[in-house]
Amino acid sequence: MTSFGSITEECGLINGSNFPFIPGLPDDIALLCLARVPLRYHHVLRCVSRRWKALLGSEEWASCRQKNNLEESLIYALCRDNTTGRNCSYVLYPEPASRCWKLHGDVPTQFSEKKGLVLEALGKKLYLFSNCGFPGCTTGAVYCYVPSANKWEEGAPMAGRCYFLSTVLDEKLYIIGGNGMSIVDQQSLDVYDSHSNSWSSNEIQIPLNDIVKVEQDQQ
């Protein structure tokens, strides 16, 4: 599976159409009903009409699911095929009836054979980057997977750094430690804000050389 279709072009259809989602029901009430359909049937709902398709990829849909505690999770895994040397991703829908890993597809071309890939979930998106330190391998490229559109997008690149650790806290991605281009990089913490799609750098005053794991303290 190499193509990730463009699904967002019809979002304008959500509002201002003469056709209701469900004839006989106002749209806000129809949305309350439709949002309760489990994730495993969403692709079927997308096929009903252009308006339903646009609805399921919309913010309105996501926020209705969130407000009513209807959000469901998928588990993604990144794998490297040792025979071909290619990276691919798998997904698991943790529901008994379909609990098996499915091949999701190739990762973006630039990362298809890269080593040291890291996948982090941030909000409703997945972020993919590499902490590989082999000569010529270090890259600051960041790719972002948007499940509601089933599409990879290019994110703001990070500063070149390798063998770093990453964690997600308060809807922000933290990159810490490892080797950078200069000694300054080693004593800094890079923070990615998904809302503004931008990185910021902060100096930190702790010895970084021996960090092996970053954990969150929710307190």
């Binding site: 599976m1 990730f4 279709g5 699904i7 056709f19 469900i22 004839p23 994730l39 495993r40 049937y41 969403h42 692709h43 079927v44 997308r46 096929c47 009903v48 009409s49 252009r50 308006r51 339903w52 398709k53 998928l74 997904v91 829908y93 009836a97 379909s98 609990r99 098996c100 499915k102 091949l103 999701h104 089933n150």
Partner: peptide, 26 residues
């Protein structure tokens, strides 16, 4: 629900394969 279909067969198939792959029963 008496809903008018305004998607082509191809569009429908595309959605099914693009979004449906994760949820086929074993």
């Amino acid at each position: 629900f008496n809903i008018n279909n305004d998607l082509t067969k191809e569009q429908e198939e595309h959605i099914m394969t693009t979004f449906g792959w994760a949820f086929q029963p074993i």
